[in-house]
Design a protein around this nucleic acid. Structure first.
Lengths: 319, 319
DNA sequence: TTGTACGCGTTATCAA
DNA sequence: TTGATAACGCGTACAA
């Protein structure tokens, strides 16, 4: 294993110069810098993370809190994790998962928290390291999320453009910001077009949406499009409609929200507001690293733009 | 932050004694041990992972290679990760994900590899740290996996017991050990009962299984049970049968394999061979940590027993 | 059984 | 702009 000292000898400088080349390159003459770089390359130098962590009083560890019951949101997370991990890796950080299974102790340099409900606010505030949330909040905490309002606006506008007569919103009955934002997007678009609104809410389980369709089939009007707050609900709506052999997308349209996995296995595939989950992971990590670097200074919020992924559950050209 | 030295002072011993209490407790008198423990508790001592890593020439990092395309297997992995992470946490290890997105460099103490195909064998062998695979292999590499053969035996026996006349296997057309083992379980059970066997194979996509049913509907015999090598295929079979309003489970039975997510969203819910994914994660990590501890010594294999999760896609009492 | 001295690889401080 | 030194917290080797 090559160390700083090895590189220093090879380049005929002190090890401090090598260290500076890495951490404060502006303090070193270009000439020296070049020969140090050369030495590092020749010796295939890799900094020792542990030594660095020790002297900086850091752990090089980020904890990821997953506060929601994992079974309900699973398909989602691997992409997030991949994004986070990619970004953390760049600065030699590694990851510890904290779930319901191991609410453990042990140091870290910062936290990424997903699935926060407002009841978590209190203990979150007591964390002694920088925190970045994945998911909207209205508590002045730094976060990254999809632009939820924009997402449902895109969905609603698309439904309108495709000529559906009624456009109804199938929401999740939680009192959380992401849901308010999604409903707001729907309401704004509808009001802009002076269309009447209708919102139904269920817990985020496909069978509840399916049962709603089953029990209300007689009263449903054709040429309705359901804009849903999640793919789970959209999936349930689609299954419900399929039971009655409803014509999708001709007589009923369905648009989901998430765009991870479930939209793909549905038949027909769901048109859905696709969240840029991987990029959100990258951004979360990026924001947290910056925050750590700046001694916990607030980093504000970051809202990424979703894309509307067109599937077979909506008409895709105007009548 | 309390250090070894702080604890030592409080307990009126040298810091080496404290260190020994942690790493070689058998070398310390009970009396001293007690007072050291007391001091650690009072001062809320937490070992400094970086310092430990530095002196031991370790990184306290485990890399998790996910070799398959993440989109195809997603729902699966979070449970695995949770299990791995829980076990690693106990010994202050943290995790780095290596996926198609970041095939990065950087040291670690060991590897967990999932989704290995036989073509990966060569470069895997060149890894310079202990490796444990998640998933069967026949290359003498240490691994943890579900007992795949037992799983399909359980499924097949159950189908027989429920009185289905034909029992056919829907396999994945990959030449990998886990698939051979699953097919073997089916074949063994069928032969034990002197029943005729039938195997179909598809890539692991639900729509392929669905299309199979669609195109062969006319020739299908009622009272057939499909034992599938994955929930994806089972899900496709079920969708295909549903198109024709086939009566499930009365006229057709379906049994999947995996038991993560997809079986839950299917209607009716799939009877499936449920893999103990979380526990497999724990075992993988456990095995790897032991292997690291024993200087890379081979740890053999570990096969955990799956459970048959009964859903609505099979009859659940004998005719 | 317990303690002392030293080194692990890095960075900050201060002096040159 | 560069270098010498000390320090981070812990574990090994050796001495007591």
């Amino acid at each position: 294993m090559t160390t700083l000292t090895d590189v220093a000898k090879r380049a005929n400088v002190s090890k401090m110069t090598v260290s500076r080349v890495i951490n404060h390159p502006e303090q070193v003459r270009d000439e020296l810098k070049q020969s140090v770089f050369a030495a590092m390359r020749e010796l295939n130098y890799r900094p020792n993370v542990a030594a660095k962590a020790l002297v900086n009083n850091r752990t090089q560890i980020i904890k990821l809190f997953i506060l929601e019951d994992m079974d309900t949101t699973e398909p989602y997370y691997m992409n997030l994790l991949a994004g986070i991990s990619k970004e953390l890796g760049k600065e030699q950080y590694s990851l510890q998962l904290v779930t319901e299974h191991n609410f453990d102790i042990g140091g870290c340099d910062g936290y990424i928290v997903t699935g926060m409900r407002h009841t978590d606010f209190e203990w979150l505030q007591r964390l002694e390291r920088p925190v970045v949330l994945f998911g909207e909040n209205r508590l002045e905490l730094d976060y990254c999320d999809t632009n939820n309002t924009l997402g449902t606006q895109m969905a609603t506008e698309y439904a309108i453009k495709q000529g559906y007569d009624q456009i109804e919103f199938i929401g999740i009955n939680v009192k959380e910001p992401f849901e308010y934002s999604r409903e707001a997007g729907y309401l704004m678009s509808m009001q802009n077009h002076q269309l009447p609104t209708m919102i139904h809410r269920f817990s985020n389980h496909s069978h509840l949406a399916m049962e709603y369709i089953e029990s209300h089939w007689a009263t449903l009007k054709t040429n309705t499009c359901y804009v849903c707050a999640s793919d789970r609900l959209a999936f349930g709506i689609e299954k419900g409609l399929t039971i009655f052999n409803a014509r999708i997308p001709q007589d009923f349209g369905i648009i989901g929200f998430d765009g991870v996995f479930l939209n793909q296995v549905a038949t027909p595939k769901l048109t859905t507001v696709q969240q840029p989950i991987f990029e959100l992971g990258v951004q979360c990590a990026r924001m947290l690293l910056t925050k750590i670097d700046k001694d916990g200074q607030s980093q504000g919020i970051e809202q990424l733009t979703p894309t509307l992924s067109i599937g077979g559950s909506t008409r895709n050209d105007q009548l």
